[in-house]
Write a protein that binds this DNA or RNA. Structure first.
Lengths: 271, 271
DNA sequence: GAGTGGTCTAGACCACTGT
DNA sequence: CAGTGGTCTAGACCACTCC
């Protein structure tokens, strides 16, 4: 079945042929790929080589393998939009509302259009000594006491979180309102923008830095990510109206189902 | 060497131990990992299992393997910052300058701080019929004639491109200035914003959508991406002052060395 | 129990990199 | 040349899923 005049490795030739079947639709999303022994016979190669070929397709995100069941052609995953520009401004205005109004809906509901009961949420606070990289962002000496808050947000119906977030505040600043030091107060209606407002801080400017990298084994497990899929890391640096950095947060999204959105309004040309 | 009371697969135990060596610094970036036969003996497993373990580490981005030389601990890759907000506004203002001023520096030089001679650039124009996904962005019927422009930008000293971009314009609109239809006019001093200005279009609002996915084999080759590393895909939708979408472009960045940056200025609270 | 994928071995040969 | 990783085999046994 493989071409004797082709000197590429046989597992690659097999992968190429399977890839072509998928691209052309002869193997449609959701359909099973033939079993490993079948493919071994069909391509006249060993099962080891078949597995190598399938591994390539897995790394390309084209197939998903389930132990004891088979290998299936993957459908592209549904993206969850995470609009940042709109969310930040909305969150800031919401911080001015009274308690009852703020309680009605959270930022993630605003992003995703889900109702407030559809979302599950867990938070954990702990004081930490600033590692050098993070101290630098705040412009404080390494070792300065920070409040580290970790969050997992998930859709109630699904086991898998939408994101894992770690947010840092200067501990002594947050201590201006002792309620901000206790994770029992989460979920806090109104989010970080409102929390900071209780200590007289107004966020004026946010810088987002976006990168991608392979997940750590822990992240792969929590986010239910398969081999070859990266996470998107969003570092958000918030400065107050005096230009001082007041919050640094790092949000980890599953790369195969997240779409991060920014709207940029440009200044008009003078006429 | 592997623990008989641990019932996890042996290749995972081996991977765990190597991962711990790297995290702890006992194997520092740049240092070689022991050879496969060495590791097989040390862990008392077959070379196949050793290779399986190393593959895991490769997928996590921790090591890099070079045929005939060995496997080395990877240093984190240097990130190239790609600030979007600042770039877009800068590019828009630059479109108003005269030819000589515009020729002095391009957008990528603005982003990276490199001089104009440091960058290499290739462009290719071709008319295409709009596929459904892209037609939808423009709000035109599928099959409408578009001008598809592909670009590769690289640093002259390095073989590997910084990004691959594909930009689409409505063909009939671009034809308003025939110079816009010919890739021989690239690099066009002033970029797309100036090109559009020659046909009376002012871009007013840009929406960026960012996702990550595994590279296609072609992208992996062009961008010199290793297994397990994803690409970051930035879809840029530009609308003119009437709200009509006038350009759609898709930029593919290597995920392991790109950092995309947005600055968001929030409205002040009324006092 | 039959069929699927997951782990593992021992050994062979090839391709590439150094000296 | 010796040493590295890359390809490949044939076969064994295990773990999981479904009937």
């Amino acid at each position: 079945m493989t071409n004797p005049h082709d000197f590429r490795p046989r597992y690659m030739q097999a992968a190429d042929e399977l890839r072509e079947c998928i691209r052309s639709g002869r193997l449609a999303p959701g359909e099973p790929v033939p079993s490993e022994p079948d493919l071994a016979e069909r391509f006249a190669i060993s099962r080891t080589s078949v597995r190598h070929a399938i591994q390539l397709l897995r790394d390309e995100g084209l197939v998903r393998t389930e132990h004891g069941r088979g290998t299936y052609v993957r459908a592209p995953r549904k993206h969850i939009r995470s609009p940042r520009t709109a969310r930040y401004q909305w969150e800031k205005e919401r911080a001015l509302l009274d308690d009852a109004e703020r309680a009605q809906t959270g930022a993630t509901e605003h992003d995703t259009g889900l109702a407030i009961g559809d979302l599950k949420f867990s938070a954990d606070y702990a004081p930490v000594d600033a590692p050098p990289g993070i101290a630098e962002r705040f412009g404080v000496p390494p070792g300065t006491r920070l409040l580290c808050r970790t969050y997992e947000t998930s859709v109630t119906r699904e086991k898998v979180p939408l994101s894992i977030a770690r947010s840092y505040l200067i501990y002594d600043m947050a201590a201006g309102n002792p309620a901000l030091l206790d994770d029992a107060n989460e979920p806090w209606a109104g989010g970080t923008m409102h929390q900071l407002r209780t200590i007289g801080v107004e966020i004026d400017r946010i810088t987002d830095e976006i990168t991608a990298r392979p997940p750590t084994p822990g992240e792969a497990q929590i986010l239910d990510i398969e081999r070859g899929v990266s996470v998107i890391v969003l570092c958000k640096i918030s400065a107050d109206i005096t230009g001082r950095v007041v919050e640094f947060s790092e949000v980890v999204f599953p790369g195969d189902r997240t779409e991060i959105v920014y709207d940029i309004q440009l200044a008009r040309w003078a006429n």
